[in-house]
Amino acid sequence: MVETLAVYRRLIGARIRSQYQYRASFALFSVGQFLTTFVDFLALLVVFTHVRQLAGWSVWQVAFLYGLSGVAFSLADVFVSQVEYLPDHVKGGTFDHFLVRPRGALFQLCAEEFELRRLGKLVEGGLVLALACGRVGVHWTAARIIVTAVSAMSGAVIFGSVWVVGAACNFWLIDAREVVNSFTYGGNFLTQYPLPIYGVVLRRILAFVVPLAFVSFFPALYVLGKHDPFTSLGFVRFLSPLVAGATLVVARLAWNAGVRHYRSTGS
């Protein structure tokens, strides 16, 4: 484990050094990443110039959802989203390189395509979350702080798992990569708003199939002290870490099945 981490540090260290050579380009890319999600926050603020509340949530309560989802998503974006490049490696035949080296293929893929500029998104999400935490008007007990931090991590694991499952599908279906965007980028967008605004079918999918409701909505119910409109089971709002663990298991199984199914081009 320690040794694997050392390898990881070296690999991404090399990536960061090479990307940092073009400083102006790197800076503008980071700004671009920052803006990618910042426009959604601007849209959120514009929405609240027309209404005081959305499904009973105030602007800063929704901003809290936005920030929590943003931090979770961008952590996954920084460390795991590189699996999106899998189809390129499968088509180009370079996936075989990963299989003959003495580390896991998933680990190598994530290290090889690491891009520091994605941090721009994390900075944006973090700033909005910090701003929202100061403005939602709750008393910040240790429990609330811990639940916020733990759900950011759980959310990152959930998003990361969705990314890996989506990428694993590419072992069977080439060219379907854009569907995965519905669940990752789409999931990020969706979890910025309170669940009750969505239709009932979409809500069930989000609670039980692709459990994105546990990224921001359920933990936020606890942190902001809100009433749960769907269930009287109080423990649901603390389930995020368990759900994250379950998605991790599913992602692992999907990835392993994909790698087993993979047959090289044979040339």
């Binding site: 209404v51 080439i174 060219d175 519905s182 967008f189 605004i197 969505y198």
Partner: peptide
């Protein structure tokens, strides 16, 4: 295949935006 995948994604985003807009227009 990529075209079909893209249509699905565009539609999903449109759905999410649609629900947000419905929530606003319910009040105004």
């Amino acid at each position: 295949a990529a075209t079909v995948a893209g249509v699905v994604t565009n539609s999903v985003f449109a759905f999410i935006r649609a629900y947000i807009l419905i929530a606003i227009f319910r009040q105004r």
